[in-house]
Design a protein around this nucleic acid. Structure first.
Lengths: 348, 348
DNA sequence: TGCGTGAGCTAAAGCGCTTGAGTGAAAAGA
DNA sequence: TCTTTTCACTCAAGCGCTTTAGCTCACGCA
């Protein structure tokens, strides 16, 4: 309890070796389940290690070629954009669950943009800091896969589309296109013909996928009054765009929002214009969270298990670190949770 | 772009030494701004290093006693509790800003509870993984300061009260008591006599501080119908507690919520019971976010700059790592942003 | 001329761990 | 009985960096 560090010395393998009366190498063999020591010795060494509270120094491990036992995660969003968001904490929490079990650390960094993010990867690689990384928010024209491939840094892209151009990277993705198609299908069945999609950031892979899927579905059904508008995911833009589309001569009867925050803001904006939900206009949020049950009416939402998404991604990365092949795995299509914000289209 | 890692070799000091025609030690001196080399050589070495894209291996650095260049951050909350939350991402984002500038990494982990969190600290210490940690959610009876003090791990406690018992730890705190006093002051002035405080998790230091401050202020003014009820911060409990207190024979005329999520849920719950805000009951959220402007009426809220809070904490930690003394710094008292959810008390 | 001095550099050890190349003794085979 | 194999273990090098001690040479000074 002194002001200056008492700094208890960490036990090293040398300490164990001395106490167990064997050489350091024997200790290494014993502790790493490698052949070369008898079961008796192995047990003794293990006991001594336990007793001393020994843990391998990651630094030393890393230096002797074992990797840093750490995984990197960069969030490239300007600080002020990180508003109310449940997705990332949940995702990270799922990632953790898997990593912690293997005593892998998670190095976390927020960056301003993708360019800075690339710099972080380079630095991490050069500093020998991470064994692999998890990449989020993939873009349609994304420099990161090329970079990571070039550095030979194992990586899992979260939320990207299958990418044949980078066979070294794993991908974990949700079928946004399928979800969008099913969603439009449902809306169509209930009479909706004019649909507005308040999308997220342009350039994000999943934003583009949803937009394309919506357009394709509209064409297939011959719907002409279907549109997508991109935003920055903020409540402000969500509200603004909502007002804009609803003030048109023939306003949409259904609004699909790319996140919960905009959906909530949109409902308020609609109410402000005298539209009531769902009788005048139906609302669906892409992303379910407590938010959706905090407003009246409760919002119908596409729900996915973000924690599980994180677990899956982390599992793929560990597989990659173990020398496994890169894979592309699809997580379940988000399910539509019907609450009170969706109903039949109002008769024209 | 091959399937198996091309694994470009990282340049080491040896490479630089060879290219610059000097010894490794000279390179070390040159690159660390230590005396022992001429300016000419220093420049040459620097140029070669730059050209090779060299970065020191953190592993090697750590091993030769320089520390891991990494800071730890544990969030001890069960995964499902990590709902809609703006505070932590903002906090972390502020922390990052300061750390990144010094090329310090942030090792992030979520744990189930404080006990597991202590285990993480022990492991990090033994594995030589971090040079210091940031501790959040301090409790009234907290084992962490003792542990960290014992390990000699530099630490900054975020949101704790000044702690004379652990002179080795820095503390960054907000004056919750002062804020609460001012808040009650304002409510009192507008005629509120019956106040309910829907608090956060019991046992958290700031929860207790707020509760105590409220009680003290109530006693000072002779208010008898003032109460605090603890919750788990969730919208569900926020709503439930709101219903309970409003159904009392003499319901409160003002509700103070310890976070924005509960406040929003509380407004909805109040509406469900026929109470309108603010004419029947005033509502204040402790923590401002986009959420507060997503509901009608817009919520009055105590606002603080969480990003700046993070910056301050990280700055204190780096000071500690540089060998500076432990300090206790207070961040500005949260400001009340008056919106539409507060008004004069209804006449009895 | 000799000697101390300091600037500029090199050699080498050490941090904690892994690992391939030994070593010595017991067990197995001829 | 002697060789070969196997087993259990030790030695020593090496990972990339820091750091201490030491070495060399030019310079200043008596």
């Amino acid at each position: 309890m002194s002001a200056k560090r008492p700094a208890a010395r960490r036990p090293t393998m040398k300490d164990i070796a001395r106490r167990a009366g064997v050489s350091e190498s024997a200790v290494s063999f014993a502790l790493n389940d490698r052949p070369g020591v008898s079961e008796v010795t192995r047990d003794r060494v293990r006991r001594v290690a336990e007793q001393l509270g020994w843990r391998p120094s990651t630094a030393a491990r890393a230096l002797s070629g074992e990797g840093a036992a750490t995984v990197g995660f960069v969030l490239a969003r300007p600080a002020h954009t990180l508003g109310v968001d449940s997705f990332f904490l949940q995702l990270v929490s799922g990632i953790q669950e898997v990593l912690a079990r293997r005593h892998l650390g998670l190095l976390f960094q927020v960056a301003e943009d993708v360019e800075e993010e690339c710099g972080v990867y380079r630095r991490w690689w050069a500093e020998h800091r991470v064994d692999g990384v998890l990449v989020v928010d993939p873009r349609t024209d994304d420099p990161r896969p090329d970079l990571l491939d070039g550095l030979g840094l194992p990586a899992v892209v979260i939320g990207g589309a299958p990418d044949e151009r980078h066979p070294g990277l794993s991908t974990v993705w949700a079928d946004d296109a399928g979800a969008m198609t099913a969603l439009v299908d449902g809306l169509f069945a209930r009479g909706h013909r004019r649909i507005a999609h308040i999308a997220g950031l342009p350039g994000l892979a999943h934003t583009e996928r949803r937009i394309r899927a919506l357009r394709a579905e509209a064409e297939r059904r011959g719907l002409t009054e279907v549109q997508s508008v991109t935003t920055d995911y903020s409540d402000a833009e969500g509200a603004a765009v909502t007002r804009r589309v609803l003030e048109a001569p023939a306003p949409p009867t259904a609004l699909v929002y790319d996140n919960d925050v905009m959906a909530v803001a949109g409902v308020a904006a609609a109410a402000g214009l005298g539209f009531s939900v769902p009788s005048d206009v139906s609302v669906v949020a892409w992303e379910d969270s407590a938010l959706c049950r905090m407003v009246k009416p409760w919002l119908s939402a596409l729900s996915r298990d973000s924690v599980e998404f994180g677990r899956t991604a982390a599992t793929e990365l560990t597989a990659l670190l173990d020398g496994g092949p890169a894979r592309t795995v699809r997580v379940p299509v988000p399910r539509l949770i019907e609450r009170d914000s969706t109903g039949p289209a109002r008769r024209a």
